[in-house]
Design a protein around this nucleic acid. Structure first.
Lengths: 254, 254
DNA sequence: GTAGTTCGATTGTCCGGACATATGCATTGA
DNA sequence: TCAATGCATATGTCCGGACAATCGAACTAC
């Protein structure tokens, strides 16, 4: 009688394509992630040890380790020395990416609509100049947008973008998100500094979001940097707290 | 005439101690991080190539790469194939850690005071039971705290903790943070699911935080998991937006 | 002068091995 | 019965090398 199977990866049909330009470790990590997502690898189950897994796939141990490590960084796996690697019990969804509101809503299954209120060039105020690291009074793009879901306003977004980075087409702004436009313009987003707070709505804000004056609003300010360190966007956003809140997963850095 | 120095790491006195139990790659990454923090490595400057750096330190290239990679993951360095590795221009501070409010305030130089309002055991409501994954009606700890800065209330924290995990000493709760107590109790924090929103203060909330009724409040709910997937804490917090906002740095995952 | 090409430099990927170290379990001993 | 010991196991760290892919700049050809 065969001994009971303890390594769930053996029945997983893992395989790598050496002729593909996709790195081997990436192929493996994708397959493992899909297996976790799909439920083939259940939470708490132990992966077989790295050496055997490498031998089975015809890979070296460093390559297998690199694949596993990327999933550990994502919070999907936990390694324990002397024990093994196991799938985390808790359901990890998104470890807080730098996503736009557009992407957020789209991921939530909603079909966000965007109305561009303003798309012009203005002189940078002291606040904007400091955030974008440009001279006060110099030209910057100013974009004001209203995000709607189910016909109701959800958020008012005001963004400032340095000149020359991007072709800010109004139609494109309404069809997709600002971040997506930046990425397709060849800008490599790197990091962002955010501040989330709350305050009472002013008369103008209340009007825009169809809320009573003085109603609580959720606010977010963000400066986004590309990988050369340039500030590529400064945004001041207000959200209707009854329609939107920030939800995300945090990972503890070991 | 000697050619101008282009590799800032040569004048950095990098060295590793092979007799130390601290991993070599970690020693190196710490020294590099300190040099960046200290200003010895200025933003935008290129690190020397990995091969030469490895040779200079008497390390292998994989070890040097591991050190550099950890700083890339922290957002301090950027690698460019064919070009080199350089220090990011933008000032990265904290890539959003799973920190407690206590730690947040302490890092900001403030000396937070804590007043424990309630420290008792209650029956889990449906909401708490769902968050902590325990049976409805079973015993859980309930801790209510008020955080003060400069004598003024800043936040009201209500936490639920499963029984048996922790010795919830009231004095210790006032002297340090809940997360610190968990860590020293041998609990390995892994991830947390958070929701940040806003709403108008109820009469009771307004009373606690010395705000008028209906004033906007910043709210945060959090479920924290340890590395075995257990929920170890569920918290519902309200903050005075005039005194506190969430500030953090986000990194784009490549 | 400009566009295309070549080439050096640097990181990206991958291999195969070696030893260290922590964990859990079985064995041994008091 | 219970605690200390030893052992198998798995990950953690580190090495030295090899080739591929990409970038930027110098060079060449038109």
């Amino acid at each position: 009688m065969p001994k009971p199977e303890v390594d769930p990866t053996v029945s997983l049909e893992l395989s790598v394509d050496r002729s593909s330009p996709v790195p081997l470790y990436f192929q493996l990590s994708q397959q493992l992630e899909a297996a976790i997502e799909h439920g083939a690898l259940t939470p708490g189950s132990l992966l077989g040890n790295e050496i055997e897994l490498a031998a089975r796939l015809g890979l070296s141990r460093p390559t297998v380790r690199q694949a596993i490590q990327s999933l550990v960084d994502k919070g999907l796996l936990v390694r324990r020395r002397g024990v093994g690697t196991q799938v985390v019990h808790s359901q990890v969804k998104r470890p807080l990416e730098l996503s736009s509101l557009y992407d957020d809503l789209e991921a939530a299954g909603q079909r966000p609509a965007t109305k561009v209120l303003v798309n012009t060039v203005v002189a940078a105020t002291a606040e904007v100049a400091a955030a974008l690291n440009v001279a006060e009074g110099s030209d910057v793009h100013r974009v004001e947008r209203l995000r709607l879901a189910h016909g109701e306003p959800m958020a008012y977004l005001c963004n400032f973008i340095p000149p020359g980075l991007l072709d800010l087409d109004t139609e494109q702004l309404e069809a997709t998100g600002l971040y997506r436009m930046m990425r397709s313009a060849g800008i490599t987003l790197h990091s962002a500094r955010q501040t989330i707070g709350a305050r009472a709505a002013t008369a103008a804000e209340a009007e825009r979001l169809a809320e009573p004056e003085g109603a609580p609003l959720l606010t977010m300010q963000r400066v986004t940097f590309d990988d050369t360190g340039r500030a590529v966007e400064y945004g001041t956003h207000t959200y209707r707290p009854s329609r939107y809140s920030f939800e995300f997963q945090l990972l503890v850095r070991p």
